[in-house]
Every structure is written in C-alpha cells, then in structure tokens.
Design a protein around this nucleic acid. Sequence first.
DNA 1: TTTT
DNA 2: TTTT
Lengths: 159, 159, 159, 159
Amino acid sequence: MRGVNKVILIGNLGRDPDVQFLEGNIAVAKFSLATTETFKDRAGKLISQTEWHTVVLWRGLAELAQKYLHKGSLVYIEGRLRTRSWEDKEGNKKFATEVVGDNLVMLDKRMDVNNGDHPVSHHHTTGPATTPTGAPHHGEGYAGLDIPPMSEPADDLPF
Amino acid sequence: MRGVNKVILIGNLGRDPDVQFLEGNIAVAKFSLATTETFKDRAGKLISQTEWHTVVLWRGLAELAQKYLHKGSLVYIEGRLRTRSWEDKEGNKKFATEVVGDNLVMLDKRMDVNNGDHPVSHHHTTGPATTPTGAPHHGEGYAGLDIPPMSEPADDLPF
Amino acid sequence: MRGVNKVILIGNLGRDPDVQFLEGNIAVAKFSLATTETFKDRAGKLISQTEWHTVVLWRGLAELAQKYLHKGSLVYIEGRLRTRSWEDKEGNKKFATEVVGDNLVMLDKRMDVNNGDHPVSHHHTTGPATTPTGAPHHGEGYAGLDIPPMSEPADDLPF
Amino acid sequence: MRGVNKVILIGNLGRDPDVQFLEGNIAVAKFSLATTETFKDRAGKLISQTEWHTVVLWRGLAELAQKYLHKGSLVYIEGRLRTRSWEDKEGNKKFATEVVGDNLVMLDKRMDVNNGDHPVSHHHTTGPATTPTGAPHHGEGYAGLDIPPMSEPADDLPF
DNA sequence: TTTT
DNA sequence: TTTT
C-alpha cells in the first residue's frame, strides 16, 4: 500500500438500493447517498448544503444493503473513490465517480425495542409505489437479525 | 500543519455529559463514549468488543452537548488525541488519553416515535425544570432548534 | 453540521498545480492527484491500482500549493467531495467530482533547494545521482518559509 | 460492525520499533509516534504542538515495521484506539491507550533505488542483542533476549 | 499525468 | 523520544 484513498460519509439514501447479482452470484448494490453539511458563509449566514454521492457495495455488504437499507436510511460508509470513464453511444466521453464501500454501519434507530411493533410505520413509505409486494422490507423489523442497526444501549453500561 | 492526528468515533454516551464553565464562561463538556465493533476472530466466531473513550468538547460544541446529548445518545465525533499526564497525591505518574472533539454530529433519531414511552430513560433533562413528565415528545424536543439531530429525510429528495 | 462528507488522500501530483486568482484576489489551485493502492486479488496476486483525483484548493491553501507543490509532490489532502454538473456546448450533461481540500500536509522530503528557484530542480530525481552534493539536510531548503514540508530525518533510510 | 473507532496519524517515530515474537511466531511491533500540528492560538500566534502516541502493530505489519521503520521514519498509520488497564505492583490502577494499526504507509522518500541492499546498515541497531548479522529476521523470536515478551498471550487476542 |  |  503506497497511497491513501479514503472516503467517510454519513448520510441518507435517496432511494432503495438497486441490487444486482453478477455471475457467480456476486451481489452489487448501488444507491445515492445525500450528505448534508451546514456551515456559515462569509457573512455568517447559516448555509445548508447537500451533496449526492453514488455508493457501490459488493458481496456481503451489498447483501446487507439489500436486507436492511431502504430509502431514507441513515448510514455510515467508509470506502474509496473510483472514477470510471466510458463513451456513450454518441461517442461522448463520460466520467462517473463512485464511492466503493468497504465498511457500512447502519445508524437508524432500532425501531422496535422489546416490543417491536409497527415496523412498517417506521419505514417511511413514501408513496403508493413503495414495494407493496414481495420485498421483505416490511413486517419484520430488525428483531432477531444478526446485525441490527445501532441503537441506544441498554442500561448495562459500566458507569 | 505538519502532521495528522485524527480520530473518528461513532458510539453511545455512557452517561450524561459533565459540563463545566471555566472562567470567561467557556464551556467544557466531558463524557465517556462506547464504540462497539463486531468482527470475526481467528476461529470465525463473531466477537463484539466495546471500547470506552473519554471525549472532551469545548465552547460551542460543549454547549451543544449540554443541550442535546444524554446517556445513550448516538454521536459521531471527529477530533484528535491528547494525552495528559500528572502525578497524583501519592506521587504516582498518571496518564489519560482523551479525544478532543472538533466536530459533532448527533445521530439519534428525532426524539422518539409516535408511541414513544420511557421518555425519562432518554433524560434530556438539562436542568431541574426540564420535562419531568416525559409526556409529549412532539412539539418539543428538537423541533425548532437550530441544530437538530439527523433524521430520516422528508420526501423532498431529488430522486 | 448534520452529515459527514470527508475524503482523505495521500498521493502524488500528476502535474504542477494550476493556480488562478479570482476577483478579490482569491486564489484557486487545481491539480490531479494519483493515489496508488496495492492489494492482492482473489488469486493472491499483487495488484497495483492507481486512481486519479481532481483536487481543488482555495485561498491560503491554494497559495501554499502554488509556492510549494509541483509535479510529483507527495501530499496528504483532507477535504470533501463536491460534484458539479453542467451542459457542454452540445447540450450534453456533464459531471465532475472533485475533492475540495480543507487541509494540506506536504510529505516530500526536503530534496535540496539551496535557493529554491526553478521548480524543475525539485523533480525528485530518483536515480543514483540523488542529492548530488551530499550536503547536510539542515540549514537550507525551505529555511525561512512559513510552512515547510515534512521531511525525513538526517540519517539514512532503510531502502 | 456497529460502531466506529478509527484513528489516522501521520508522524515520526521517536525510536526504532520494538519488535517481539510471541508464541506461534506472531510479530508485535511497538513504537512511539510524534504528530506535530501547528495552528494559531487565539492571539493569532503560531503554535506548534506535538502529541505522542503509542502504536502497536501485529503480524505482517509488525514485520514491515521491523524491516523498514526506524527512529525518525515518517509514517501514515490507520488504526483504532484500545485502552488497556492493569494494576501495578503497588496496586495502583494504570491505564494505557494505544493505537492498534490496521494499515501502514511509509512516507519516507526512497533515497536510493535499484541497489538498496544493505538493510542492516540502516537498522540503527540499538544494542548488542539486535540481530547484527543481517540474517533473516524471521524464525528466531526473541527468546533469550533482554526484553521479556509482552505479557499478552498469543491466543484470545482481541483482533 | 504521479509515484515505487 | 520524532520532525522542522
């Protein structure tokens, strides 16, 4: 390793992840992530600025994304920049810079603590078009899953 | 700037922040932060390991901590390492390494949800006069505050 | 601040920085930075992969870049991602993702410089003719400058 | 992974690394790293502040440290914080916070290329117990050397 | 286009 | 204890 190429993002998914399976059953997930920063401009006025990133996850992380992430999810992504270039059908050179994620932390609050009900109501379904069908995003919550999102700790802190 | 000394943490407060005001009315907040990582040991077994950090915030960030953070809060902290040393009354040399925060992002979900019970367990009591009942989570909490914690975005995403 | 958008790069400049001054005498520097990572592919073969980034620096950092950076310089850049979009003259939508630097650390060894003119002399000749004088590393180079680059110690290196 | 505990350092080694081999021939390297930051105090005066960190590397990274790092080396370290506690012989509770490195980038410029074949002469051997021959560094361990092996058992390592 |  |  002779250089460093590291990206750290915390933001919300703009859409449900798009997950595909390549040959060999290798999962690839792709989604847009919005990071919003607020700062003061030169005049001292508070400015809020949103930047959209394309995030790509592979294999196990892609499967996690498929299982647990959806539009609006808040995530921490650690990864690296990768710029791809190609020519479109008109022969124009195109570039796309993506963040290839090496690490993913789900920051949404665990919706159901101890009595996990109404998971659906937390999914912030945003319209009639949202996965009314087989997509197993709803009706389960994180209960019983191996890698639940972070949540407030129980009262067993050593202090 | 000739070197780099950077720390990035995401974790939960073990206790409400301890906030003090130095002369000149400079606020200093201090709290323990637990970061939990899970990984596989050499045998492939999933291990969960919690590390406790002492976080120190100054001035504006300390005041944010006083207003918004409490035991259990989930936060992103960016800062730097600082090790202090001193001798205790018995003359023993002591060391303490702290993370001095330069940046703070509150990752808790906005307050609680619709049916949020146990408000007391979420504290937020920033003084004796504050919401002793734990009644309505709506219309109070972060609403209208300048720097609310992150939450799932509204439906105005450009996708 | 409600999200995180952070990039950390260590790499070499592909060209001398392009520095311009906007109205108000605001400096803007732009350069390509190559980060090279080596890793093992699935077959265990060592792969070296270079990624090119567009880095933009403003104001004081741009002026530092103009003074001290040149083709081949090794730098640490901390910044954030920003994607700009526009339409070219043919009406094609274009995107460009840049790293806007908030922090810069120069990692080059103090090569020589005696009288630091003609940046070409900084070009890091890497053959056996390096450091033609064998003169001391101290008391010359960037002496008197405000922010000298980091450099190696005076002793030998294990390479 | 449910939290984040990340440290990024760029600095110089204060001493040659101390490398030991635990049972199973597992290498552990330990060294102090100085990170120096300069900034302006409230009065606008330029302040330079050095912080010392204890860095611990395991296995392959430890062997790299043994081969290539020495007093004064400039390195990039990415790792995580770990605080150990114990009682000394007087029964005083002691704490030590270390940075366990997961990634290492050597930033020293290669001084001589193509003929770099005298690693021993660069090793700044600090005592008679140190491999004076230039023989292989592996397969020997530190058995019988002055410095007792670290007390941590080879098993149950928290990584 | 850099660097090793 | 480093580095400049």
